[in-house]
Design a protein around this nucleic acid. Sequence first.
DNA 1: TTGTCGGCCGATCGCCGACAA
DNA 2: TTGTCGGCGATCGGCCGACAA
Lengths: 228, 228
Amino acid sequence: MRLSSASFIPQTQEGEKRVLNSELWHACAGPLVSLPAVGSRVVYFPQGHSEQVAASTNKEVDARIPNYPSLPPQLVCQLHNVTMHADVETDEVYAQLTLQPLSPQEQKDAYLPADLGTPSKQPTIYFCKTLTASDTSTHGGFSVPRRAAEKVFPPLDFSQQPPVQELIARDLHDNEWKFRHIFRGQPKRHLLTTGWSVFVSAKRLVAGDSVLFIWYAVGCSTLFIPVV
Amino acid sequence: MRLSSASFIPQTQEGEKRVLNSELWHACAGPLVSLPAVGSRVVYFPQGHSEQVAASTNKEVDARIPNYPSLPPQLVCQLHNVTMHADVETDEVYAQLTLQPLSPQEQKDAYLPADLGTPSKQPTIYFCKTLTASDTSTHGGFSVPRRAAEKVFPPLDFSQQPPVQELIARDLHDNEWKFRHIFRGQPKRHLLTTGWSVFVSAKRLVAGDSVLFIWYAVGCSTLFIPVV
DNA sequence: TTGTCGGCCGATCGCCGACAA
DNA sequence: TTGTCGGCGATCGGCCGACAA
């Protein structure tokens, strides 16, 4: 079971992009995941790390994390850098932390309480849906929950019949995805049609997987190209 | 550019299968590749190995081959085991050698001239073709060079009109592939049709890639099921 | 001898509202 | 409100010989 995500993010500046992707990263990671602040002190458990990597990759871990017999079970470290990543194949999010072990003297020299990390902020304008069999079949498109569409997608032009627009979104890897968003049927409902199946097959989504959309209202108008 | 291969190998016994896959492995590796015999002495160059791995994977090699500053530039080793492998994704062949470094004393104790390796024997009954645009397009099948088909494929029943049969082959991973082999057209030519496109997409073959067929005449008749 | 193409037909894709849960 | 389905048109896959390199 996997989670795919897309955000409607304008590519205005590098700085802004990084901030927005950080928000998408946290939205995918969930509210329980928090990252410690750069400069704070963290305790690193080599053995636990080895076991977790071995469990998640089902591979021998020796080649990646050499077994140093002299390594202590836990190390007090200073956090130098934090970068957010997403697996190229699965979109699974993970973070890379650069740690520097502190000598016993350094630990005494300037003791500071450990940073517990800033709690992850969930974006308010987003929705997450578990995909149904119909959503992932080749027979049709993606049925968008009504309140989700009204909250997250830019408003449709209801003077058109039927109301329809093109959505352009970007995923964690900054890939661009285009979706045809239409409001049709009896009773009326929001659907993503053209472009949806490409996304499903590219992300290898199956029923039971989840998809997450977030939206930034600011400066996005140019990205949503209304279809005449 | 990649090489895909398939052999028409009966799955009679484990032992025979191993021998046959060894032949397919050597056919893919090419005549210049030879493997030293188990028990012989080989010289291992850690630095050269690191550089080669780094070049072929385009990745940092530090994580896989730790840099031991005290490691000598070359090590005389005894070869304990040789296993042939093929990459699951690309079918690229490679071998895994288990080496044990010999102490200076051991090297002196029983000096034997280094084994230069048994030269790789190319199977006589095989053919290799570089795929054309037509071979890999979705429009049609695979055009088999006439002499290659007559040499490697089992003979067709020309009393049928057109002559046609089903070929069952196995690749290096022991996966089974079925191809419809037909002799038709004006002028007449050998073609692989049904089943070919599945192979192309599964192996992700493109024009310029090569495909290699080998055939063992002994005991293969049951594997070639004539289509009525 | 064989690489590419037009023709053709069947399978699949994917958009539509109907309908019911 | 929304998951699934039948209907259907459009597209694509893939088998055929024609033809020429």
